[in-house]
Design a protein around this nucleic acid. Sequence first.
DNA 1: CGTTTCAATATGTATATACATAATCGCCGT
DNA 2: ACGGCGATTATGTATATACATATTGAAACG
Lengths: 246, 246
Amino acid sequence: MSTVETADADSGGSLHQRILSDISEKILSGAWAPGHRIPFEHELTTEYNCSRMTVNKALSQLAKAGLIERRRRSGSFVRRPQSQAAVLELHDIRIEVEALGLPYRYERLEQLKRRSNAEDRALLGLSAAGSVLWIEGLHFAGQRPFALEQRLINLSAVPEAGDEEFLEIAAGPWLIGRVPWSEAEHRIRAMAADKAIADALDIDPGAPCLVVERRTWSAEHPVTHVRFIYPAESHTLVARFTPSHG
Amino acid sequence: MSTVETADADSGGSLHQRILSDISEKILSGAWAPGHRIPFEHELTTEYNCSRMTVNKALSQLAKAGLIERRRRSGSFVRRPQSQAAVLELHDIRIEVEALGLPYRYERLEQLKRRSNAEDRALLGLSAAGSVLWIEGLHFAGQRPFALEQRLINLSAVPEAGDEEFLEIAAGPWLIGRVPWSEAEHRIRAMAADKAIADALDIDPGAPCLVVERRTWSAEHPVTHVRFIYPAESHTLVARFTPSHG
DNA sequence: CGTTTCAATATGTATATACATAATCGCCGT
DNA sequence: ACGGCGATTATGTATATACATATTGAAACG
């Protein structure tokens, strides 16, 4: 009955991708509740008019992603969802520094408007080329470098930024209030300082650093990618959570 | 001529699983640095004496896990570390490891019941003395240490934990489900590995590590303090969120 | 000299097929 | 009724094969 030509979400072009997305749509929308047995491979085979390997690839991925559970001889079943989201609060660096009782200062090191290259697009999550603004600057706590900031701004999303000179105020505070962000993603990792970073932060090359990268979107449009590099001694991130409902 | 019969790690029985785990071992150990081109599919085909589909399955999974990047006509390359480590949620290391497609294992190193000293009380946020349980253990991804765990449990809050032997399951999963946590706090920082940590994680002393500390409360009572130490190469925390949590 | 075209190449996807493995159902004998 | 055992079934893994697609490098061309 339910043939497939009408499928709306073509999320990757490939057939197994579409099978996967069709099924996860059913699960995430609640149409197929936890415990529901999804069609057997051979049924999907005839429904999508494809080979079992193709169906198997989709179902295997769903199983690995934890959306379904597969049992030999019995079939595949929708699993109970079990993720626990949490909120991470990251402070503005000025506030962090001032909370330490130290005078805050920002100093721009470099600023450059250019056409986005492949790496820029990867960082921002852009598919097409366009103008970007690259800024590097240093946050000081007293006399001491507190964090190095490397920022990329998508000028297609925020053209006004192209006319600004971020000499003594960082682009972060400027962006907030001008561009309402709808989503953000943080990546946090440790890294050994290379020579350039060590020089900027006045630490030894090879010393451990905390790296926080943040990507921000405003209504699906990538706005900015920023990387903060902290000397390990100077920084600890604090994130507070309260549990969410299961 | 490097045939495979000598391979040590038989991680899942299936061939593509072993290929996957062999390669990720090379990457996580640093033997194949970021940017390194891994063998072509047809080369692995002859090395493992199997079909291209089998190799392809392993490499596709590695690509989906984010360990490698595949480029048509050019080959497959080790990506900069960003072990697609789920969302910064309840920090279950088993899930992180399995998301990489690697077999997970936990091994207890040390366990000790004692009366809390001043440092214990500071870590847990206790005002009065009492019994605590100290546990140190290692989380493995395949053959490789993935994270070192140092945990302190407040036995006044969770007396049953005193009768447990956390030999092959970490205390984290055990605590969840037994003790409903009401609040948690994370501290994230970078650190250079000292000798003991370097030994445990099989990395060089002084190498940068990511340290995630988590304190958990249940109805105002401190429950546990845990410290996870990751080699920098193997880990990136990812936290994603939206501003107004409807 | 720059541009266009084309063939080579590695990956991406899909096929039909085969056999292994685990779990279940139902038959059977005691 | 009961327990065991084989047949059935769905998934798990692997194969050889085929063609699509993206990208590179080099040859051909204006």
